[in-house]
Design a protein around this nucleic acid. Structure first.
Length: 1048
RNA sequence: AGGCCUGUAGCUCAGCUGGUUAGAGCGCGCGCCUGAUAAGCGCGAGGUCGGGCGUUCAAGUCGCCCCAGGCCUACCA
């Protein structure tokens, strides 16, 4: 066993343990140990291998590792496979930035093969970084066996899924105005839109367009997206709403708008000239905003009815551009409006849009306003604050664009998914409701992306006009079978663009050659197949049997609509059930003050935090945090966690310090007869710790585990070690000392075991040095040891309660000392305690302890408080409420009004258990509805709580004062020893020189005690000649000169 | 617009099926203890338990309404 420093450097300790784990192959040995055991069927959600971790990413990883460790200690095997999410827009965007690209044309020019390689490289780089960081966090995973969503196995799995969807008739393509990112050149799916609406300011335009039937009448139309006016084909009104026509003196026209929107006329002085229903406008033709644009020629612009129109904002007349909005498109389809698509995939106006052609949609609002101004069609243009969607990856504002995309129809599977999701145990439970809500609202899944680095959709649409058949490839065999050139299939380096694009197949229906569609897949397809692709569903039935369904997944809340959703979708499709049984979802990681972390703004990097406070402290913070609220991460909180951990270190370092001197056999069987009361209590408390933490882990409730441990640490440190300190040194009673070592050792070992999943480094460090020294046959690591069960002979619930009583008694008595300004080193003559039977038993049992803790000579447990207390009655509301019902208030008032003598009289009656005749109340009242209150008499220090009353005799005599002085003296000498850099076992020569008579008397009387306490072999009354230290002190006003020197 | 979560001391959070005077940690002030000694303990100040109404003998806890923050969903033009 090594000596350990009093103060611990967690970061250095963790680095050391990491090296040990590495060099001794602890993880490999653990895997060996659990092979063949029943599985903890965990699966890791793929983390995006695109950037280094921030501290907020480490929360989930800490929780996962914690519960895996717990389960493994419980004799389970586990699929220790970490996963990386590797495909999709997020990787492409970062690689584009890296290469300085502006958009898709740059990628095309660069070459798809080189681009794919660059994406793969980036993924590998950051998978490596994240792996290193995860190791530093203490995660034990099979890092060599991580899965990557871009690998062919995963892609083939998704092909299989898509083929099943196709066989079910769910796959279709259609043109729809989709949320579109002009920078990324692709549309986004519904689940990518969640949370993407941000508050921003845009120029909104109120346009006024003339009716063709009478150009002096104009429609007032509002939009927040001026660029879409170029694609206007209709104006919608609500047929049942009231519309008004207004005129101002300085206008040469009238203006038509919904009455409910007339506040926009403020300041114009316009007056109503006509009033009619919206239906009266339907069918009117008008001149559009930009009639001069070529793309607008031949379009007939009409007023159309639409019952979703309201007047809450704008004018109550809605601009309709079916090429620029989903709802517009659907309306247009219903009533036969042809969409105009004004912008290309980069958000630039096509030819045919006059001066706007070639310009970016986002750049033209002012110009549009100017054009309308010039043509007299601008009513006003004002800045407007609203929520507008942005691209979740690159944060550019989105546009809506009519494009052809691929979808999976959800109508058939929705009810099945709802049933499957209802079988899942969601924690917190409201996540289940959220999933149901999402499923109710989900539209068809848009699975295509017009990008490059992603799952190649195995869709082949026959170009033959008469055929047009969609062939979906579900496996490599099918691809080889249908390929024009099967050799090309075998020569594919990987299932990615551009290579896969080279493989043409024969149409399933007409056998003509067909080329793959250009699109790649939504990255949530990649993640969703993981419960199948990594568990052997496609290639290892035996493994699948063991690993499926997934028992537990743990991810951030937003995965409800992402990973949890896509897994549920695929599981329901392939197995008609949820692929996972139990979910733990947690909130976000935020800064200490609640500030959100973001890549561009405020951020604590993982590496920085690990270097500063260490992984154990980080994990402690994460595990302590309820999953239902954001975890606040910061260094003040981190320091706090470190202090809790230091609590364990202090106890550990204490026992090591003395064990090195005494060389006890801590692990020897306990001699139950030699155990003191506090020993038995410590064991009972340890047993309780095991039971409570086990329940917490079992319920995936790490915060309750950490709270239990905090309370245990406090108990072991501030009770057990505090009161038993002296048993560890200079203890002549070998059996007694052995008991102390044995018990403290067991408490520490137990604590290490139950804390190991949360703080794997510190606990293993203690294990290596202390436990393995004491028990050479112990497991190599705390993480290899079985989860503890509470030994029956440790349990003692009654003793736990009695000790609580004793501790409350001490607390009361110390409170009295505080009030009387009597320091604890000053001995007192006597204390009285009054309490119930339980209290009497408890104090009698632990009387010596109480006396020494309180430094009183005598403890008297008395029957009544008559000597120093007076009783009065209150009500026990729990009982009285039921007995008296509405009369409770009256009785309470009566009681409050009694004078002291009467109170004492009825209290005496109540104490006997007889019915109480309360003055002013007709009927006798049962004793049990009352509660007793004790009031101090005169001239006594009395304190009471929880049915215990403590009284202290605070009078001092000369003998007590002298003893107090001596104890102060001893204490100060001990400090001087320490300051003089003496070791705890060094012997000294001591001199005490004083003229003060009571101090002289004290020193004389307690000479041997002083020498014993401070390890002095000689106590001189004259100053030492060659002292190591010599100081003049004043103790309670008495002067004394103290000197000491090291002996030998 | 609808739904969900949260709201308890200056800060971070406990508070079980309603029960006497609502707790802990941090921070602050004052003491104390210590052969774990740059730790530890006690006491004190600090609360309209977000607000209101209701149910009840009794509400931080149950119900309804409102407010604030966060999140989710939605035909957010």
């Amino acid at each position: 066993m090594q000596r350990v420093p009093a103060k611990v450097d967690f970061v250095a300790l963790e680095e050391e343990i990491l090296q040990l784990w590495e060099s001794e192959n602890f993880f490999a040995k653990l895997k060996q140990q659990v092979t063949g055991k029943p599985m903890f069927r965990f699966i890791d959600g793929p983390v995006t291998a695109n950037n280094p971790m921030g501290v907020h990413h480490a929360w989930g990883r800490a929780l996962k590792d914690c519960f895996i460790r717990y389960n493994v200690m419980n004799g389970k095997d586990c699929n220790f496979q970490n996963g990386f999410d590797c495909q999709g827009l997020w990787v492409e965007v970062e690689v584009e930035k890296q290469l300085g690209f502006q958009g898709k044309p740059d990628i095309e020019a660069h070459g798809l093969d080189k681009f794919s390689h660059a994406c793969r490289d980036r993924v590998n780089t950051f998978a490596g970084v994240i792996t290193d960081q995860s190791k530093r966090l203490g995660q034990w995973m099979d890092w060599e066996d991580s899965y990557y969503t871009h690998d062919d196995r995963n892609i083939r799995g998704i092909w299989h899924f898509l083929k099943v969807c196709s066989d079910n008739g769910w796959i279709y393509s259609k043109a729809l105005p989709m949320p579109w990112c002009a920078r990324c050149g692709t549309s986004l799916s519904e689940h990518e839109m969640a949370g993407s609406y941000k508050e921003m300011t845009h120029l909104s335009i109120y346009g006024q367009v003339p009716l063709l039937s009478d150009r002096s009448r104009r429609l007032l139309i509002w939009t927040t997206t001026p660029w879409t006016l170029s694609a206007n084909v209709a104006a919608a009104v609500h047929p049942d709403l009231d519309y008004i026509e207004v005129k101002a003196d300085d206008w040469d026209h009238t203006l038509i708008l919904c009455e409910g929107a007339k506040k926009v006329l403020a300041g114009t002085g316009a007056a109503i000239v006509a009033r009619f229903k919206g239906s009266d406008l339907v069918g009117e033709r008008y001149e559009t905003f930009h009639p001069e644009f070529k793309m607008q020629t031949g379009v007939e612009h009409r007023v159309v009815p639409w019952d979703v129109v309201d007047a809450a904002e704008g004018s109550g007349i809605v601009h309709i551009a079916p090429g620029c909005g989903k709802e517009d498109y659907e309306l247009g389809k219903e009533i036969g409006l042809e969409p105009i698509v004004p912008i290309d995939e980069n958000g630039m106006f096509f030819e045919g849009f006059g001066v706007l052609s070639g310009k970016g949609a986002a750049d033209v609002p002012d110009e549009v306003a100017a054009i309308l101004e010039a043509s007299g069609k601008l009513f006003k243009a004002v800045d407007y604050d609203h929520k507008y969607p942005v691209c979740w990856r690159c944060k550019d504002p989105l546009v809506f664009r009519l494009v052809g995309e691929w979808f999976i129809s959800c109508d058939e599977i929705r009810p099945r998914m709802k049933v499957a999701a209802a079988d899942v145990q969601w924690k917190p439970a409201f996540m289940g409701a959220r999933m149901q809500d999402w499923l109710d609202n989900m539209g068809d899944w848009c699975i295509s992306r017009k990008r490059y680095w992603g799952l190649p959709l195995p869709f082949y649409v026959c170009a033959d006009e008469d055929c047009g058949h969609l062939t979906v490839i579900g496996s490599m065999d099918q691809l080889r079978e249908r390929a024009l050139d099967p050799e090309k299939v075998d020569a594919l380096p990987e299932l990615h663009r551009p290579w896969i694009d080279d493989v043409d197949i024969h149409c399933e229906k007409c056998n003509k050659p067909v080329t793959r569609v250009a699109e790649v897949g939504d990255c949530w397809l990649d993640a969703g197949i993981v419960p199948y692709s990594t568990t052997g569903f496609f290639d290892d039935p035996e493994k699948f049997e063991r690993s499926y369904p997934i028992e537990w997944v743990c991810e951030m809340r937003e995965q409800v609509r992402l990973w949890f959703y896509s897994m549920l979708f695929m599981g329901t499709t392939l197995s008609d059930r949820s692929p996972y049984e139990r979910v733990l979802a947690y909130e976000r990681g935020v800064g200490e003050d609640g500030t959100m972390f973001s890549k561009t703004g405020y951020m604590i990097r993982f590496d920085e935090a690990a270097d500063k406070i260490g992984a154990d402290a980080m994990r402690w913070l994460y595990c302590r945090q309820p999953v239902t609220s954001d975890v606040r991460f910061g260094y003040a909180a981190g320091e706090l966690a470190q202090r809790k951990l230091a609590g364990l270190w202090n106890i550990y370092s204490f026992v090591v310090t003395y064990a090195l001197i005494d060389e006890p056999d801590c692990a020897a069987p306990l001699n139950m007869d030699a155990l003191t009361v506090t020993d038995k209590w410590m064991l009972a408390r340890s047993a309780e710790l095991i039971e409570k933490t086990t329940a917490g882990y079992q319920d995936y409730d790490s915060p309750s585990v950490v709270r239990e441990i905090e309370s245990f640490l406090d108990d072991i440190s501030n009770w057990y070690v505090r009161v038993n300190r002296r048993r560890f040194w200079k203890n002549e009673d070998a059996a007694n000392q052995a008991a102390a070592y044995g018990v403290l050792y067991r408490a520490i070992k137990t604590l290490c075991l139950v804390l190991a999943p949360v703080a794997p480094f510190l606990t293993d460090s203690v294990w290596q040095n202390l436990v393995r020294s004491m028990e050479p046959d112990a497991a190599l690591s705390v993480h290899h040891h079985a989860w503890p069960t509470a030994p029956a002979e440790w349990k003692n619930a009654d003793l736990l309660v009695r000790t609580e009583t004793v501790r409350s008694t001490l607390s009361l008595a110390l409170n009295l000392r505080e009030k009387a300004s009597l320091r604890v080193r000053q001995p007192l003559r006597k204390m009285f305690v009054v309490g119930g039977e339980d209290c009497r038993v408890a104090l009698a049992e632990q009387a010596e302890l109480v006396k020494s803790e309180l430094n009183v000579k005598e403890l008297e447990i008395v029957d009544g408080t008559a000597d120093f207390m007076r009783a009065s009655l209150g009500l026990d509301f729990a009982v009285a409420g039921r007995a008296l019902r509405k009369d409770v208030g009256k009785v309470k008032a009566l009681l409050g009004g009694l004078d002291d003598d009467v109170q004492a009289t009825i209290a005496a009656v109540q104490a006997t258990g007889a019915d109480v005749q309360l003055p002013g109340w007709d009927t006798p009242l049962p004793a049990n509805i009352f509660s007793r209150k004790e009031v101090a008499g005169e001239g006594v220090e009395v304190s009471a709580a929880d049915g215990i009353t403590v009284a202290l005799d605070t009078e001092l005599d000369d003998a007590l004062r002298q003893e107090g002085l001596v104890r102060d003296l001893v204490r100060k000498i001990q400090v001087l020893r320490k300051a003089s850099a003496l070791d705890v076992s060094d012997r000294i020569r001591l001199s005490l020189v004083t003229e003060e008579s009571d101090l002289v008397a004290g020193i004389t009387q307690y000479e041997s005690l002083i020498s014993q306490e401070v390890l002095a072999i000689d106590l001189a009354r004259e100053t030492l000649a060659d002292s190591l230290a010599c100081e003049d002190w004043e103790i309670m006003g008495r002067k004394v000169q103290v000197a000491l020197s090291r002996q030998g």
